[in-house]
Design a protein around this nucleic acid. Structure first.
Length: 476
RNA sequence: CGGGGUGUAGCGCAGUCUGGCAGCGCACUUGCUUUGGGAGCAAGGGGUCGUGAGUUCAAAUCUCACCGCCCCGACCA
């Protein structure tokens, strides 16, 4: 197999696909539009899952599991929801060798199944809030799939909550978005813009959709997570009422929210370079790898015993591996671990043993640092922290440098075409202008940012009054 | 569904125009030498040339039909 990776500048999306395949994160499945996540890629997902799960539980959410198959009539109960999802649903029509009386939809999301259960579980305000999450796979029949970013089947996490009041649901939706932002920025080292979606970009059946939007290295935006305030739409459709504190009756207020294996795609497209993947230390299953280097068999035993004591020093606090495979040369191993994105490499050769030193090599900068044996266990955590921080800062700088304030449509088109990135521009608020801009430039409103300064201006397209700027970009 | 490609060893490809022994690189196996940035040499294994039909003494190559995959669009809470 050809081991080298082509430079990413030439064709970013081809480079991305090649990298995913070469780093053995995923592979094309024998079913069109579907992807196999290989152990390497699954490790990343496990780490994402582990950390998010902890954060959900800390804020009172519990995991449950709901069925894969949903009666077709459930989807049709909520009109907007049906319009949003019907075209991309896969449907089972046969079972037990017979045509089914009612077709079963493979879940594209579980709102309908979950709300049909919530009807049984919720009768009083004492049953609220109900805070449930599930980790599962879903199917959306996409016409044009891309590994990790959009596949017909994918793994995700979907939270579904029920509340007494609009305010409480709104607070929950925003709280979850905050968790997503914190996780994506602090663990994945991916800086994002937070905001709400325009009406046309909203989730089918939601009052509000909140989103975090990241910027990939080719200048295209990626929606990294969404959180929806569903109002009472699903409660009405599934007739979920509860007795209020004052003895009255009301429909339940709902939220739903999710992130998927798409985050792995975001991680790669944000940090990877021409040597391969770069994994932020906080998400790395294996943050440190030790590579022994030797020539003679006499050196071999000296170097290996040195790496053993190094290993014992570090293994208390870090997952460390000694790559002592005899069949590969050190230079081969360097490249291989760089392709896998391991944050820190420790090289140990005869010269280092002699001087009681080691060489630490950072994945993010390639910098080689000589450190005395005694300092290694102090230097490793320091460097890992620095790498984590540096990855975030580098990506943040990139995102900020590619966020352009633009005040007329001609410049808007030019920036979209030539530079890419986010465009911060005035918009009158009409869906017609939004649609026109999309069809002319392929740029969509990614979000109306929180903490947006009020500013009078003219809509970039129609020139009508506008009270704030919104973020546009071409997106994946 | 429209436009453009492509299908030959596990992967990447040449060979097709002009029909005549099934090739190359990487990977794999064995041996020796190597080992501080993807090692060298030698030997070796691996093929329904996408499928079906046709033309021909002879088809990866020419003709017809079908199928798959990739890229660009349309779709994508």
């Amino acid at each position: 197999m050809e081991n080298r990776i082509t430079p990413k500048e030439e064709n970013f999306s081809q480079w991305y696909i090649d990298l995913v395949l070469k780093a053995k994160l995923a592979d094309y499945a024998p079913v069109k539009g579907c992807m196999v996540i290989r152990p390497n890629g699954y490790l990343l997902w496990e780490n994402i899952q582990k950390n998010l799960d902890r954060m959900f539980k800390e804020s009172g959410h519990l995991n449950a599991y709901f069925p894969l198959l949903i009666p077709e009539s459930f989807i049709q109960k909520e009109t907007e929801h049906m319009e949003g999802f019907s075209p991309e649903c896969a449907v089972v029509t046969y079972g037990g060798g017979k045509k089914l009386k009612e077709p079963l939809v493979i879940r594209p999301t579980s709102e309908t199944m979950i709300w049909s259960m919530y009807r049984r579980w919720i009768t009083s305000y004492r049953d609220l809030p109900l805070l449930i999450n599930q980790w599962c796979n879903i199917v959306r029949w996409e016409l044009r799939p891309r590994l990790f970013l959009r596949t017909s089947e994918f793994l995700w996490q979907e939270g579904h909550t029920a509340h007494e009041t609009y305010e409480e649901a709104e607070k929950e939706a925003l709280k979850i978005l905050g968790i997503y932002r914190k996780f994506v920025e602090e663990y994945m080292a991916i800086p994002v813009y937070e905001g709400r979606k325009s009406e046309s970009e909203r989730f089918a059946g939601a009052l509000q959709t909140y989103t975090i939007e990241a910027l990939m290295q080719d200048g295209r935006a990626l929606q990294a997570g969404t959180s929806h305030n569903l109002g009472q739409n699903f409660a009405r459709a599934f007739n979920v009422k509860f007795t209020t504190r004052d003895g009255g009756e009301d429909y339940v207020w709902a939220t739903s929210w999710g992130v998927s294996t798409r985050l792995i795609g975001a991680l790669i497209m944000t940090h990877a370079d021409n040597k391969g993947i770069v994994i932020p230390p906080k998400l790395a299953s294996l943050p440190v790898v030790i590579i022994p280097i030797y020539y003679s068999s006499e050196e071999r035993s000296r170097v290996l015993s040195y790496t053993q004591s190094l290993y014992s020093n570090l293994k208390e606090n870090f997952n460390v591996k000694i790559d002592d495979r005899e069949e590969y040369r050190p230079s081969y191993k360097f490249n291989e671990w760089e392709l896998q994105g391991i944050p820190l490499r420790i090289e140990v050769g005869p010269k280092d043993v002699e001087k009681k030193e080691v060489i630490l090599v950072r994945r993010d900068t390639g910098e080689k640092i000589s450190v005395s044996f005694n300092e290694v266990s102090l230097q490793v955590p320091t460097l890992l922290n620095e790498i984590q921080k540096n990855l975030f800062e580098k990506a943040k700088k990139f995102k900020e440098e590619r966020t352009f304030k633009v005040d007329n449509f001609e410049d808007f088109q030019k920036v979209v075409e030539d530079k890419g990135g986010f465009i911060y521009a005035h918009w009158c608020g009409s869906p017609e202008c939004e649609a026109k801009i999309k069809s002319l430039t392929k740029a969509t409103i990614r979000c109306i940012p929180f903490r947006n300064e009020k500013e009078e201006g003219k809509c970039i397209y129609c020139g009508e009054e506008s009270s704030q700027r919104v973020l546009f970009a071409r997106a994946y």
